[in-house]
């Protein structure tokens, strides 16, 4: 997960809160005597902004994806499913999709599983002061932008003046030095690694907050039973944050399919399109290869992927409501 996903909310409980509104409704019967239509004034600014600048373009995108579109003249002609046919036959599209998938898998490993364990370790410390220091320290990379982090890691990975190769040399691991962003088999993983560095603190913070909400009596009961810290993590902490972990996974995966910034800054998808992800391939198809219709088709693919993840999330959050 990355700072950009702050957009999407730490965890997306859209429906959960939707259901919660029911008891709230009961609490305010008849408090409003204002003409009900005039009351629309309250929601219209938000709804209109969204309708015009979020939903309308979304709808237009489907229309654009069936066009051949010349960026120079602006002329458009209908070509049906041709862009989609081209997309399914495009090896770079599939490669980009695979890179997004790698992004999700690795992010789940580090930013969900890793961050959860890390949060448990930090919260297990005895001194509140240190807990706070670690939480803040780990979060700092998430506060700096992906652009800054990307540029910084470009220099860290640079084969000649970079920190990483120089460090490996010093450790006597000179054999491992390479052009991290310049090789087809390492470029995307070097970017993903940077993204873990940048984002793990954010997830750790989220888990730390969740762990704090677990009533301390549960821990005390466990310790009376003579349960060690490792087992306590598995038998007390984990079950209580399991639902949240599930949601975090989906948010992380959904974010992984929207990656753009760091790839653009670090490799622009190269070398030989090896680090291309859907977002950058969309951009390159539209703005470099002049094919806006095709770019819109890629956008449709991103839409359906993120939509199905969001629906999965809804389904999961519908099931929760048990814990704390």
């Amino acid at each position: 997960m990355t700072t950009n996903e702050l957009t999407r909310g730490p965890v997306l409980p859209a429906p959960a809160s939707g259901y919660r509104s029911r008891p709230a409704k009961k609490r305010r019967p008849g408090t409003s005597r204002i003409s009900s239509l005039r009351a629309l004034v309250w929601v219209l600014p938000a709804v209109l902004m969204l309708a015009v600048f979020v939903y309308l373009p979304l709808a237009q995108n489907f229309g654009f994806s069936v066009l051949e579109w010349d960026i120079y003249t602006g002329s458009q002609s209908f070509i049906g499913a041709e862009n989609y046919r081209k997309m399914f036959a495009d090896p770079v599209f599939w490669h980009a999709l695979a890179n997004n998938a790698w992004y999700s898998v690795i992010s789940i490993l580090f930013q969900v599983c890793g961050a959860l364990v890390l949060a448990a370790l930090v919260e297990g410390l005895r001194h509140d002061r240190w807990k706070q220091i670690f939480r803040v320290l780990y979060f700092i990379p998430s506060a700096i932008s992906l652009t800054v982090a990307g540029l910084l890691f470009y220099f860290i990975y640079e084969p000649e003046l970079g920190l990483l190769n120089a460090g490996l040399e010093r450790l006597g691991l000179g054999d491992l030095t390479q052009s991290w962003l310049g090789q087809e088999n390492t470029a995307i993983f070097a970017i993903i690694a940077m993204s873990q560095w940048q984002g793990f603190g954010y997830c750790t913070l989220l888990f730390a907050v969740a762990l704090q909400r677990i009533p301390s009596e549960l821990y005390e009961a466990a310790s009376i039973d003579g349960v060690g810290p490792v087992r306590r993590f598995f038998s007390v902490s984990l079950p209580l944050v399991r639902e949240m972990t599930g949601l975090m996974m989906i948010v992380t995966v959904s974010g992984a399919f929207q990656v753009f910034n760091e790839v653009m800054v670090m490799t622009t998808g190269g070398p030989n399109n090896s680090s291309q992800v859907l977002g950058t391939w969309l951009y390159r198809s539209g703005f470099v290869r002049n094919d806006f219709g095709y770019a819109a088709a890629i956008a449709t693919a991103i839409f359906f992927i993120t939509l199905s993840l969001a629906l999965l999330q809804l389904w999961i959050s519908r099931k929760r409501r048990v814990e704390w």
Partner: peptide, 14 residues
């Protein structure tokens, strides 16, 4: 070249 197969990771300005 000094950078050889690594050249894709080097900026032209470098």
């Amino acid at each position: 070249t000094g950078s050889g197969a690594d050249s894709n990771g080097v900026l032209y300005t470098t």
